[in-house]
């Protein structure tokens, strides 16, 4: 059977998905508990105060990066299953990458703008 297989990728993505899942499992509960403990927050100043500690901003960004990478692997898998035309799939990959990278960058900008 003729098939161009053995792309020597896949294990990396698979590991990345697992690793980012671990990061999310560790960071998300901390963030959620921290935010819930501070609620209710009524105004922008409250939010600013909430995110003023540096460790929290680092943690938040870490979680966001992990989430983006995790989502990237997941979305890529989804497109591999359902989208056959290579060009369309590449375009969708690009859209996902731009959206995820953009979101992370934006989050970083937002978090550091409060300082």
């Amino acid at each position: 059977m003729k098939s161009a297989s053995g792309a020597h990728t896949g294990t990396g993505s698979w590991l990345l998905q697992r690793a980012t899942a671990v990061v999310l499992a560790l960071t998300l509960p901390v963030l959620i508990v921290y935010v819930l403990a501070a609620t209710p927050i009524d105004d922008f100043a409250g939010w600013q105060a909430l995110f003023s500690p540096l460790w929290l901003r680092v943690l938040g960004l870490l979680a966001a990066v992990a989430l983006a990478l995790h989502a990237w692997v997941g979305m890529r898998d989804l497109f591999m299953d359902y989208v056959r035309p290579t060009l369309l799939r590449l375009a969708l990959y690009l859209a996902v990458v731009v959206t995820l990278a953009g979101s992370v960058a934006w989050l970083a900008a937002v978090l550091w703008s409060v300082a």
Binding site: S5, G6, T9
Partner: peptide, 14 residues
């Protein structure tokens, strides 16, 4: 392993 290390051949398993 080389032949299986491929996003499709092995890693379609969910």
């Amino acid at each position: 392993l080389d032949h299986l290390e491929d996003p499709y051949r092995l890693y379609r398993c969910r």
